[in-house]
Computed example of a mutant assay.
Amino acid sequence: MLGVSAWRCAVAAVALSAGIGLGVPAVAQEPVPGAVISVIPQADGFHGMSGAQVIDYWTRGVGGVTQPASGALYLPAGAAPAGGWPVVAYDHGTTGLGAGCGGQSDPAGAPWPDSQAREDVFLRHLVSKGFAVVAPDYLGLGRFDTGPHPYLDIDTEATATLDLLRAARSVRPDLSPVWLAAGMSQGGHAALGTAHRRQSYAPELDFRGTIAIDPASDVEKVATLLGPGARDRVSGGVLGFSASILAGLRAARPDARVDDYLSPLGRQVIDEIGALCQDAIDARVADLYLGDLLSRSLGEEPLRSVLADYMAVPTSGYDAPILLLVNATDRTVPSPLHAALAAQFAAGGVAFEPVVGTGSHCELNAAMWAAIDEFLMRAV
C-alpha cells in the first residue's frame, strides 16, 4: 500500500499506466473530491461478476482534507437502457482499520470470507436486477494508506460513497442520475449517513431511497455507560468493534482526547490495531475486556459529545424513503439498538418501512428479499 507522500510522487505514473488510454484524465494539480485518479479493468470473476472496474479517486477526508480512496464499479451485461443504468451505491460492513482491508477493490483482502460472500450475493443480485453498483472501500481501507480508517465516522463514510458515485459517473456516461444507497452493518450506518448528507453534498443527482440492513446505530449511547473495570459488559468479538471505534475516533477527532481515557494497555492496543484487518483486531483483544483498556468512563466530556457528533445516525430530515431490514436475533448489533433506531425514525417523521427477521446479523430471509425487490422496482 502507498503512503500519501509516496503516492503523490508516483501519481503521474499511475495515471499514465492506468488512466490514459481509458479516457480517464490525469490527476489535477489541486485534487478535487470526486475526481478520478485511475481506472483499472478487472478480469471476469471479480466478485463473481464480469466487466468490473476498480476506480481510484479523490474524496473529502478527515477534517475536510482531500485524500485518495478506492472502490469498485459493477455493470449489468449488455447495453444500458434509455437514460442509463440506475445506480446503487453499496456500503460494506466492518472489515478493519488498515489499507487493503476494504475488500471492494481487492476481494482477496477481505478478512471475513463468510461476510464477503454474503455481501457479494447481494451485489450480484442488484446487478441482475439491472442496477449498476458502486462500492467504496471507505477512507483508509482500500489501495491507499491514509492512516487508520475512521471507523463509523458517518461524515467520511458518506463522502467516500458520494465521491465514488461522482467519479463513476465521469468514467461511465451511461450511468443514470437515478440512484439509491444500500449497505449492511457498518454499511447500513454508512448508507443512512450518505442518504442524509447527499442533500447538501450531492444535490444534483436524483436520489430515490435507502436500503439499510442491520445497521449499526445508537452505539454511541451505549458506549457512554462503559468505563474501567467493566469486565462483564464488553469482551470477545464485540470488543474488537469497540477498540476499532476508539482507534478511528482518535485518528479523526483529536478534540475527543481519546488517549486521556485509555489505560497504558489501552494505548498500546489502539496503537497496534490501526493498520490491521478485523480478524487480526479481534485476535489481538480476544483475551481482554474493554475495562482493561480504559482509565476513565466514556460518558465523560469531551469524548461523550465528540463521539455522538462523530457517529450518530441522523433520525430526521431524510427526503427519500428508507427500507429498514433488521433481525430480532441479531447479536452483533443487538436488536434493542434496532428497535431504538426505528422508534427514533417514527418520532422524527421519517418515511421508513421495517421488515423484521429472526436470522443472524445481516441474514436476509425470503420476506426481506421480496421487500428489496419491490423497493428497487418502485424506486425506478
Score class of each variant (00 low, 15 high):
Q278G: 13
D214Q: 05
A275S: 13
D279R: 13
Y138G: 09
V27E: 14
R253P: 00
A190K: 01
R124C: 01
A52Q: 01
R257W: 02
L75F: 13
H149G: 07
P107F: 06
D120W: 09
L225P: 04
A99T: 15
D255C: 03
D319H: 12
P111K: 04
S244R: 05
K129G: 01
G357W: 01
G71N: 09
Q42D: 00
F345S: 02
C277Y: 12
G274Q: 12
D114G: 10
D120G: 05
R250I: 01
P111Y: 09
T315M: 00
L152E: 03
A182N: 06
D287V: 12
K221L: 14
Q42T: 03
Q278H: 11
D319K: 10
S105V: 11
D56W: 07
S70F: 08
P215T: 02
V350E: 00
S38Q: 11
V313W: 01
G229T: 05
V39K: 12
I154A: 14
H149D: 11
P336Y: 03
R197T: 14
R331V: 15
V238C: 06
V313K: 02
G188Y: 02
L205G: 05
V36Q: 15
A320V: 07
D271S: 12
T94R: 10
H189L: 11
D279Y: 01
A286H: 07
F46Y: 12
G348I: 09
L324N: 04
A320E: 13
S242Y: 15
L341C: 06
L165T: 15
R197Y: 10
G142C: 13
A283H: 09
D279A: 14
V258F: 04
R250F: 00
W58G: 03
Q67G: 01
P314M: 01
P33H: 10
A80C: 14
V269R: 02
P76I: 06
G291S: 11
R197A: 15
L225S: 13
